[in-house]
Simulated assay, not measured.
Amino acid sequence: MMFASPVRFHPDVEVKEPNEAETVESLKQVFDTILETTAREYGHSVRSVHAKAHAILQGELSISDDLTPEVAQGMFARPGKHKLLMRISTNAGDILPDAISLPRGIALKVLGVEGERLPGAEGTTQDFVMVNGPVFQTRTAEQFLGNLKLLARTTDRLEGTKEALSSVLRGVNTALEAVGIESPKIQALGGAPNVDPLGETYHSVTPFRFGDYIAKFCLAPISPGLTALTGNKIDARGREDAIRETVRDEMRGNRGRWEFRVQLCRDLEKQPVEDPTVNVNGGAKPGRWAAQK
């Protein structure tokens, strides 16, 4: 199959929305509100999103030596191996019982990455943040701000109500999926399936500059022990930390293998930079990595 040439990065591929700077400042204020609310409740600070961690895995990223020039960009330009850490989490800003099922997240911290850095950036790490869904819940930052304000008003309140609502929304989400409809908004409000995070594929959702080009990323499980877990539901009834307990048991003494995939932008109309609600499948594979607990 012949592919179109990847679109080269240029500042003009980004189109700023009216009042985008003001929207960003408002987002910061809402995140601060979530931080202040949870700090008062817990007596210490936690993250404003993905506050609850389920596992920290350590591993090694292997960068292939046969990548095409368009994929061999940035940290992937040099074959080799890097130590890394992976954090598995759930996306809420408060630490909730696992019976409230929300989208899962993965954060990768790749160590020992040399090269030119952004102004003001220090160190030799490269971070990637992904969630277990290919699209974002809203098209614009302003729309996301509206959703975030709603979530901020429910931060660390009414856990019992949230559990009941989550159960109802899971049913709604299942019904929608049965007719081929996916609703990231319903999943973000508690309707996500309560799946085993080790079997999930994780996506950057939004595009990023990728050396000379533009790309989205994803991380997919490839070892049989992980792919066997894809779609498995975790029964969290009466178990506040069911996900942590499950991942700990599954990874005890085991190793898993994932594939880091890159999807280059080749058509700005079909792969719009400014619309993260568009899903286009596919991607090259510049790296593999194995991890253990």
Rank of each mutant, 00 (worst) to 15 (best):
L111M: 14
T125E: 13
G123Q: 09
P134V: 07
M130V: 07
D127I: 14
E114H: 13
E122Q: 14
T138M: 01
D127M: 13
P119H: 10
T124F: 15
A107V: 11
G112H: 03
R117V: 08
G115E: 06
R117M: 07
E114K: 11
E116L: 15
V129R: 09
G115S: 11
G115V: 09
G112W: 03
Q126N: 09
L108Q: 07
L118E: 14
V135L: 04
V129G: 02
G115A: 13
P134S: 04
T124C: 11
V113S: 06
F128H: 08
F136G: 00
V113F: 08
V135N: 01
M130T: 02
A121R: 12
V129D: 01
L111W: 04
V135S: 03
Q137M: 13
G112Y: 01
A121M: 15
L118I: 15
G120K: 07
A121V: 15
E116F: 15
A121P: 14
D127Y: 14
G120Y: 05
V135W: 06
M130K: 04
G112T: 04
G120Q: 02
G133Y: 06
F136S: 06
G123S: 12
T125D: 13
E116N: 13
K109S: 12
T124G: 08
Q137L: 12
A121N: 13
G120H: 06
A107R: 10
K109M: 13
V113A: 08
N132A: 11
T138K: 00
A107G: 09
V113N: 01
G115P: 00
K109R: 12
A107L: 10
E122I: 15
V110K: 04
V110S: 05
V135E: 01
V129Q: 06
G115K: 07
G123H: 10
G123T: 09
T138W: 05
V135K: 01
K109A: 10
V113M: 09
A121G: 11
P119S: 12
E114C: 11
N132R: 02
M130C: 03
Q137P: 01
V110L: 12
G133M: 07
V131P: 03
G133K: 03
Q137C: 04
A107N: 09
D127F: 14
V135Q: 00
G133S: 06
M130H: 06
E122P: 05
A107E: 11
V129C: 04
K109P: 03
P119M: 14
Q126F: 14
F136Q: 02
E114F: 06
N132L: 07
A107Q: 10
G123C: 14
F128S: 00
G112Q: 01
L111N: 04
